[in-house]
Simulated assay, not measured.
Amino acid sequence: MTTPLSLRSDAEHLASALPPLLAEAEHLAATVLLGDHGRRRAGTGDTFWQYRPAQVTDEARSIDWRRSARSDTNFVQDKEWQIAQSILLWVDQAAAMSFTSNQNLSSKGHRARTVALATAILLIRGGERVGLTGLRLPPKRGEQQLVQMAAVLAENTDQDYGTPESQGMLPHSRALFISDFLGDLQPTHDALHKAADRGVRGALLQILDPQEEAFPFDGRTIFQSMTGAMQHETLKAGDLKARYLDRLAQRKDELQTLARVTGWQFQTHHTNAAANTALMWIYGALERHA
């Protein structure tokens, strides 16, 4: 039986391996989160943001006559947007994400989890509601939500490749999908089109090991999936390099096109790059849909 204590233990176990990234997330939170919510854009709220010249669409009652009296132009006060939004995360926890080509590098899954959790920290502390796709962890605020999210993200599945879960995405919410996207892409197409139909916009982050980009293999090589369910042996691995790299490029192009037509953002991140580069890209991509 799962208890709050075990959830806390799971979350602390996960977090114990991530102090650099969590420290970076705290630093980012201090620099990118402004005020109680941190979106610094015009909208419905009580907190003053900036003066701007009045437009013909502005009502007369919105004009700040005291400020306008000091110039030849009428000004209105923009208020900061203070309506919390819901952001749903899907993190691929399939076996393929456990791959790493070097013991000094994070696995794809480890990087995906840490970046997702850091994103959740930034968003929740910025006043948003964050959860996981599906119905297991609906979007909420608060530190306890982060604890529960960490516990869920610590789990693994026995599938070779993950498929995005599109259930539970609220109309006009935002979403983040993190995966290597090396399996069948049809479920990803289906999930993003369903999301677009509900007005959901978001970001796709593809995480790859540098070896998956370079394909440094030659001679006799046995390629095996992480579960061992798929295997291919060749005596001339070097002859496969050009075709492999071409197919990888085609896959990235397909993901980029899919993101564009559904109103999402797409980026590839490598595990030998700093984790905070992915975190900053995600935060910026989600803010563009705020």
Rank of each mutant, 00 (worst) to 15 (best):
P4C: 03
R8I: 13
H13W: 01
L22Q: 11
L22G: 06
A23W: 12
A25N: 08
A29P: 05
A30C: 10
T31A: 09
V32Y: 04
R41N: 13
G45V: 03
Y51H: 14
P53T: 07
P53C: 05
D58A: 02
S62K: 09
S62F: 08
W65I: 13
S68P: 13
A69C: 09
S71T: 15
T73P: 10
F75D: 03
Q82T: 12
A84D: 10
Q85R: 14
Q93T: 13
S98A: 07
Q103A: 14
Q103E: 01
Q103T: 10
L105V: 06
L105I: 02
S107L: 07
G109H: 09
R113Q: 14
A120Q: 04
L123Y: 05
R125I: 02
E128M: 04
V130W: 05
G134P: 08
L135R: 03
Q145Y: 03
Q148T: 12
M149I: 06
T157N: 04
D158C: 00
G162M: 01
T163S: 14
Q167C: 08
S173N: 09
S179Y: 06
D180M: 00
H189I: 01
L192S: 06
H193T: 12
G199H: 12
R201W: 05
L205I: 01
Q206E: 06
D218V: 14
R220G: 04
I222T: 12
M226R: 02
G238F: 09
D239V: 12
A242G: 08
Y244P: 00
D246P: 05
L248K: 00
L248M: 08
E254K: 13
Q256T: 12
R260T: 14
W264V: 02
N272G: 07
R288C: 01
